[in-house]
Design a protein around this nucleic acid. Structure first.
Lengths: 128, 128
DNA sequence: GTGTTTCGATTACATCTGTAGTCGAAGCAG
DNA sequence: CTGCTTCGACTACAGATGTAATCGAAACAC
């Protein structure tokens, strides 16, 4: 039974920043990841390497040798991560129902008229 | 300048369970909170007390004496907490735009036809 | 070929989090 | 009064997280 790998391991906030870099473009060396996240987080290369190690240990990324260094790439699709996190939020705060989330966004003034128009268009399309 | 208190302190997962109890009904004693969360979390009363202390320290709840014990109550409205968490998610995963969130929910099959109908109705109302 | 740079691996260390246990004071049972 | 219970305060302790520093091996500079 080949490694059950649902990888339910959580991705921490710092690790997430690294993942975004890899989702954007992969494979990357540690150095390249560091450069990619630099605009957002002021991390030393060491820090980025630590985060990469932890992601490796959690089986969320993989690496392959490239001469003396490694090239890292995601094992988890951003899509799946986003779905999981969204569901977590909806479950924790809205009893698992999406409707209250949207209602909340609307009421808390986080929906511009443009958002509203776009969402309506989207929903219309979904029904077809 | 009286205590700037935006309380940007994060609420951890375990602490959140306690908050839900207090948002549901307050003020409560530690004992009562423990009973309220019991169905969801199998915690000793001590654990609940620790969480209450931490929330107090973070200025997220307050307590008032009631004889020999304390009565605890939220200082942060659930509404505000929910808004903050929602915004965090939208910022982290959808570039701050709500539209992609909704699109994602739709595509990842988390929207039932009923949800869609309800959301449309809601949006319609928002425009009026 | 020797010093310097660079890599990954290992170690470090403070804080936060989850989950209690212990302790001294106060109150209750009798 | 005297022991049992209950409270809040303080302490504990392992694992996760943020943020690196150090170390030995390999590669590069000359």
């Amino acid at each position: 039974m080949t490694e059950k790998n649902a990888s339910p391991e959580r991705i921490s906030d710092a690790e997430h920043a690294v993942m975004e870099a890899l989702w954007q473009r992969a494979p990357l060396t540690a150095q390249e990841v560091a450069e990619a996240v630099a605009p957002n987080r002021d991390w030393s290369v060491q820090t980025v390497k630590t985060l990469l190690s932890r992601l490796l240990a959690k089986n969320i990324i993989a690496h392959q040798e490239d001469g003396r260094r490694y090239l890292y790439r995601p094992l988890v699709a951003r899509e799946d991560y986003v779905t999981g996190e969204s569901r977590r939020l909806v479950d924790r705060l809205f009893g698992g129902r999406v409707m209250p989330l949207v209602a909340h966004l609307a009421e808390s003034d986080q929906l511009s008229p443009q958002d509203i128009a776009e969402i309506e268009a989207l929903l219309k399309e979904l029904k077809s």
